[in-house]
Every structure is written in structure tokens, then in C-alpha cells.
Simulated assay, not measured.
Amino acid sequence: MISTDPFKFSKSNCTKLVFIVIAAFCISPWLSPPLALAIGIVFAQIGKNPFEKYNHKAIQWLLKLAVIGLGFGMSVTSALSAGKEGVYLSIASISLTLLLGLSLGKFFKIDKKIVQLISSGTAICGGSAIAAISPIIRAKPKQISVAVGVVFLLNSVALFIFPEIGHFLGLSQHQFGLWSAIAIHDTSSVVGAAQVYGNEALEIATTVKLARALWILPVSLLFAVFSGGSLKKVKIPYFIGIFILAIIVNTYLPAIHSVAPYIVSVSKSSLTLVLFLIGTTLSFSSMKKVGYKPLVLAIGVWVFISVLSLLIIVKTTH
């Protein structure tokens, strides 16, 4: 039944208009990633996202396209160097994070599937890992929403505090790029934090994070085997291959150099928009549903891997 109340109609249209204006402003060069996220969080408290049913898919596709676009700003040499340096740290941090998360979850008697989702999200790449693991372990919508809520909340905190910590400790671009790729959950927040810190940090963070994201596949297989899940549900992150192809094209095809800076610029703006969309999912009411145990678990594991990886990076790099 169509409402005849003009106030309701105008309020709905007004919310849509404000949302579209903010989204358009996000892709302008005047809005930083942290500010876009903050505006999204404020919007979530004042009004509901009028395009909520499209939000999840929009975040997924925009993030993938933006990351691929960033590949046009990198070279094969620098990407291989960053990927090689981060591989051992990635393996160690993923293993430790999963082991600690699953152990603490069992000790505190937290829902097993929520623990598996939070642990994999913290260990690998946030929402993408949760999306990959959830169908394998047959997680319910409520369990998925709790895990995603926790990860997105901590991502938001990381985006604001990591650059400040980096500057306070005097971390180099190289060190910060490595640290953010290892210690921040989601690719969008990794790139957002590194973008604020500097171009070298952005290049290193993006490369190491995507190399880390490849571990979705073996971890998915482990969950399928040891949790009685379905191997048919295992997904391969194909977009990472396209990202690598973009780096190769940018390195060996000089004709692309005239448009590459514009592609990179659009990609950075798209990531700012992604962070605004993520912010609109972080309402206080949705966070209340998370519960304190999963949140304490996620914070504990995150702080552990953040501090440990920082100490190792500071001692072994310059």
C-alpha cells in the first residue's frame, strides 16, 4: 500500500538526496579516507542508509575495482620486493592469530562459528575472509553480522589511530606500509591508512595485503576439512590476479603511462567512497547486537598481533 503521508515521502527523498550528495563528495579530492568513514558513522546514527540492500555488494565491487586500479601505479620490481619481504611475516602472523583466536574462543566458550569468522577476519583480510569462510562453515546470518560488525568497528578505529601511532613512533613509509598490511583487518582500511601516511606506504601496504589475502584459499580449505564444511564453497580471489596483471601492464606497456595516474586517482577516490559506505553500517544499535565477549576476543587478538608485528618490523627494518 502506497503511503499518502507527504512528510514520510519527503523525508525519505531527503535522506536519499543527502546520501547521494555525501557519496558524490567522497569521490572528490577534498575528502580524506578517515573523514569519509567518520561521516558515514555519523550518518548511521542519524538516519538509515536508504540503499542498504545494495550496500554490501557496492562495497565488495568498488573495493575490488579500486584495488585493481591501484596496480596501475606500481612496478613489478617494487611489488616483488614488498611481497617477498612481507611473506614470512604474513605466514607467522596468520598462524599465530588463528591459533590464539580459536584457543581464546574455546576458553571463553564463545560461539564456535563466530570465533572462526572473527579469527579468520583478523588473521587475513577482514570482511573478505569472513565472506569466504562463512558459507564453508555454514554460518548463520546472525553469526556473520556479529563477526562483520566487530571487524568493521576495529577497522574504523585502526584507520584513525594507526597513522597517529606511526608518526608518534617515527615509523618510515616502508615500516608503516608493512605494519598496516599485517595489523589492520580489511583491505579498505589498510589502503586508507597507508594513503594518509604516504605514497610509498600505500604501495607497500597494498601489495603485502593482497599477497596476504591469497591465504584465504588455504585457510578456507583447512576450515572445509577440519570443520566438516563443503569444499564446493571454497572461493578463489580472482581479482588479485587482475591486480597483478595491472602492475605488469603498467611496468612493461609505456602507452598506459599517460592514463595510469588518472586511474590511480579514481581508485583512491573509490576507496574513500567505500569507507563512507562501511561507516553507514556502524550504527550503535547494530553494535549492541555484537555482545561483549566477541568484542573482547577480537580486541585481544588484534592488539596482540598489532604489537607483536610492530616490534618485529621496527627491529628488522629501517
Score class of each variant (00 low, 15 high):
69 G>E: 12
53 K>A: 08
65 L>H: 02
39 I>H: 09
46 I>F: 06
24 A>H: 09
43 F>W: 01
65 L>E: 09
23 A>Q: 05
51 F>N: 02
55 N>E: 01
43 F>D: 01
57 K>E: 05
28 S>E: 03
43 F>T: 02
69 G>H: 05
57 K>S: 15
29 P>V: 04
31 L>V: 06
29 P>L: 06
61 W>M: 15
53 K>E: 10
50 P>M: 01
41 I>A: 13
26 C>F: 04
37 L>S: 09
39 I>S: 11
35 L>S: 14
37 L>P: 07
48 K>T: 00
32 S>P: 15
70 L>H: 01
61 W>C: 14
51 F>I: 04
54 Y>Q: 11
41 I>P: 03
58 A>T: 15
59 I>H: 04
70 L>I: 07
56 H>A: 15
27 I>W: 04
53 K>V: 07
50 P>C: 00
28 S>M: 09
63 L>G: 13
59 I>N: 04
49 N>T: 05
23 A>F: 03
30 W>E: 02
51 F>S: 04
29 P>T: 14
58 A>H: 07
40 G>H: 07
35 L>E: 10
60 Q>W: 02
47 G>H: 14
33 P>E: 08
67 V>Y: 03
35 L>D: 12
50 P>W: 00
50 P>F: 00
66 A>E: 10
36 A>E: 05
47 G>Y: 04
28 S>P: 10
43 F>S: 03
34 P>A: 01
66 A>F: 01
48 K>H: 02
28 S>A: 14
69 G>R: 08
39 I>D: 12
69 G>T: 13
65 L>A: 14
34 P>L: 00
55 N>Q: 14
64 K>S: 14
31 L>Y: 11
50 P>I: 00
54 Y>V: 14
29 P>C: 11
49 N>L: 02
44 A>S: 12
41 I>E: 06
52 E>C: 05
46 I>N: 03
61 W>I: 15
66 A>P: 08
66 A>S: 14
55 N>K: 09
65 L>S: 15
26 C>T: 04
50 P>H: 00
24 A>Q: 08
68 I>A: 11
39 I>L: 15
56 H>P: 01
27 I>V: 14
47 G>Q: 12
24 A>W: 07
